[in-house]
């Protein structure tokens, strides 16, 4: 079991740094995880992270990258629903990195 220390509070994570307890997530933790991924959170980053949290709330799964891309396109427009845009924000994979920052489990099917 691993953990991270943010603002004097300890949060349990798996060995890859994904939060174990979804309900503990907050913006401060998100910022912290983003830093460990070398990401500076902009409004565009937040838009994707918030989208993922809403998706999880609705369906109880973290979507695969292909599904995420398609759904973002539907909701936020085609200029955002494409891999160039999403990989631009999350270079190591929008599924992997954005889910981690959003406090969600790694997407099913993401190896």
């Amino acid at each position: 079991m691993s953990s991270i220390e943010v603002g004097g509070k300890s949060y349990e994570t798996d060995e890859e740094g994904y939060l174990l307890n979804l309900s503990e997530w907050n913006a401060e933790v998100a910022d912290y995880i983003a830093k460990t991924e070398n990401i500076d959170m902009s409004d565009q980053h937040w838009e994707v992270v918030n989208f993922l949290r809403e998706y999880f709330e609705e369906y109880q799964i973290a979507p695969a990258v292909r599904v995420l891309t398609k759904s973002i396109g539907k909701k936020l427009g085609a200029d955002k629903g494409n891999s160039e845009y999403l990989y631009g924000l999350f270079p190591y994979g929008p599924g992997k990195q954005a889910c981690k920052i959003a406090g969600l489990p790694k997407p099913t099917g993401c190896v």
Binding site: Y59, Q60, I61
Partner: peptide
């Protein structure tokens, strides 16, 4: 126990 039934509604996205 985790209620995984909402995920059946996401199948369409897949």
């Amino acid at each position: 126990t985790k209620n995984f039934s909402p995920a059946y509604r996401a199948l369409e996205d897949y």
